[in-house]
């Protein structure tokens, strides 16, 4: 296959994939979606979405950042412990951590509701969604950090730091954390992206007062307000595309660093 044929084929596939994205965004900035672009561009739908669903955007960001903080605080130490222990128990814990990714979100959500739905006011609080997101996102943080920990000479570096006289906090903060920063960054971007887009589980966990962006988006689509749903999708893209790009960049960087070692 010649170069130009190849290029043409690639562009065709790309267009096939990108077209739905454009189609879903375009009505959101068009004055009259039935007349098309000739009716002119408008920010009216964006403003209306913000008025009606602004709260869901803020709640989604709040949940995503909270999920990030918790997965960092729990996931990094967990990965460290898993990396230090080679035994069967450690591998079982690692497997158990990944379970929520394999189990359908709806099943996890039902489990959470059955187990904790009646505990105080938890069911009505945004914290209930947070719990679900942490359960779902934690394995991604652990995996990203664990991969870096396993690729470096953890035991050797720790022993060298100890031989230099470093106490545990000194060597954890001064030697281990700086060397796993790449993994933490990759894991963080992954966690924020997944949390912002999580729908399956959140659909069951949310209440009318704790709607996240994807849940609100589904609501807008089912209400058959295409222009609103469209503008809403655009807002989602604005949030998620920079995160996805950053993720690609971080992964590329990690690969280069890995290649040097």
């Amino acid at each position: 296959m010649g170069f130009w044929t190849g290029l043409g084929f690639t562009l065709l596939i790309s267009a096939f994939l990108i077209l739905p994205v454009l189609v879903s965004v375009l009505p959101g900035i068009t004055a009259n979606q039935f007349e098309g672009l000739s009716s002119g561009l408008t920010t009216r739908w964006l403003r209306e979405v913000w008025a009606n669903y602004g709260g869901t955007v803020l709640l989604s960001l709040q949940i995503a950042l909270s999920t990030l903080v918790i997965t960092l605080l729990v996931g990094v130490p967990a990965a460290y412990v898993l990396a230090r222990h080679a035994g069967v128990t450690a591998r079982l814990v690692e497997e158990a951590l990944v379970m929520p990714v394999a189990v359908p979100g709806i099943a996890t959500a039902l489990g959470l509701i059955l187990a904790y739905g009646a505990v105080g006011d938890l069911r009505a609080s945004w914290l209930f969604i947070l719990v679900g997101h942490v359960v779902f996102c934690l394995p991604f943080m652990v995996r990203a950090v664990l991969a870096v920990l396993l690729s470096m000479d953890l035991k050797g570096l720790e022993e060298a730091a100890r031989a230099c006289g470093a106490s545990w906090p000194q060597r954890f903060l001064g030697v281990i954390l700086p060397n796993i920063a790449g993994g933490m960054l990759a894991g963080s971007l992954m966690v924020v992206t997944l949390s912002l887009g999580e729908f399956n589980m959140t659909l069951l966990l949310h209440t009318p007062f704790t709607r996240t962006l994807p849940v609100g988006l589904a609501d807008a689509y089912t209400a058959l307000r295409t222009e609103m749903a469209s503008a809403y999708t655009l807002i989602f893209f604005v949030l998620i595309v920079p995160l996805l790009s950053a993720m690609q960049w971080a992964a590329g960087r990690a690969d280069r660093v890995g290649a040097v070692r």
């Binding site: 470096m152 570096l157 022993e159 060298a160 100890r162 031989a163 230099c164 006289g165 030697v175 060397n179």
Partner: peptide, 20 residues
């Protein structure tokens, strides 16, 4: 007394230099 409190210096086979 663990190594960090023995005041010894150690050179490892793998060097184990701190990459950061």
């Amino acid at each position: 007394l663990p190594i960090e409190r023995r005041n010894v210096g150690m050179v490892f086979q793998s060097y184990a230099l701190f990459p950061n």
